[in-house]
Design a protein around this nucleic acid. Structure first.
Lengths: 151, 151
DNA sequence: GATGGGGCTTACAATCATGGGAAGGTCAAG
DNA sequence: CTTGACCTTCCCATGATTGTAAGCCCCATC
């Protein structure tokens, strides 16, 4: 099977299959005399595994660990579970951050008239966090907000 | 005020301030004879605005729109509100995707014994989605999963 | 006035996962 | 043998951010 067929069968793009090979996530594929990569059903199986893990939000690094356990016949299910639950915790942390953003914005938006006039508590809050929109506002204290890569 | 001081005062790194300038998010700063960028309190104000919007998860593109409205004295609060709520919708969509991942993984993990034996429904599911862990499993039908950049 | 340390400048690379495209070789059908 | 679909490698771009490196500037201290 060529890379295109493997891609279609696994749901992983040919581009990404080459990338995974290059970065060592998967072993180098066998080649034809012409240099074409050749994939077996087993390989497609592995690619589907990867695809599914990606769908569950695992990073390539995390998938690497999962693949290691997958291939390890003497693995302990406790290790798999630990990996999975650590990822769940990551997801929940990210969710909480996004949720906090959404809630903050929603609160601000609900206080915004949303009409033709320019005054808007959303902009006021962005200007001077925590201050009341009514007062002039000339904040300056240094803050230390959480920060995170904006998902 | 030099870029370092502006960075400290606004919470935006000097690196990012230059980047924002380069990409046109903020206008080019004034310069000293030696070429040092100079910032006013007004500039710091704007940088803080940007920082705060980033904290709320707005992309640079979204911040650009917010800044436009912020500077526009004749803006309509309805436009600001629309922008904010659209972003909230984005956040909620992302949250729902992450939540689904977390829930799926949690369900799988709860079915995993987490002991010293190798059998684990998490790996089974990654191998052959939807199939029961007990049966051999030799899936092959092409599926069309949702896919998204893994947040 | 020289020197040193810290801040500033630009430019370039790396990150992470992915897509896009060019230039060129290969394969199978007609 | 030609055509078109496929494959190869290599490079570029994304988005936001950080890191590094070479070189200049400013100020304080000796």
């Amino acid at each position: 099977m060529n890379i295109g067929a493997a891609a279609k069968a696994s749901g992983v793009s040919a581009k990404m299959i080459r990338y995974y090979e290059e970065t060592g996530l998967i072993p180098p594929a066998a080649r034809t005399d012409a240099g074409y990569r050749v994939y077996s059903e087993q390989d497609v199986h592995m690619l589907r595994f990867i695809r599914r893990a990606r769908d569950l939000g695992f990073s390539v690094e995390g998938i690497n660990e999962l693949l290691g356990l997958w291939r390890d016949r003497s693995r302990q299910s406790a290790d798999v579970k630990r990996l999975a639950l650590a990822h769940v915790a990551d997801l929940r942390r990210k969710i909480a951050e996004l949720e906090e953003m959404a809630a903050t914005l929603e609160t601000l938006a609900s206080a915004c008239h949303g009409n033709a006039r320019p005054d808007c508590p959303i902009l006021s809050e962005l200007e001077a966090p925590g201050e009341d929109a009514k007062r002039p506002a000339h904040a300056s204290s240094a803050r230390g907000l959480s920060r995170f890569g904006a998902a």
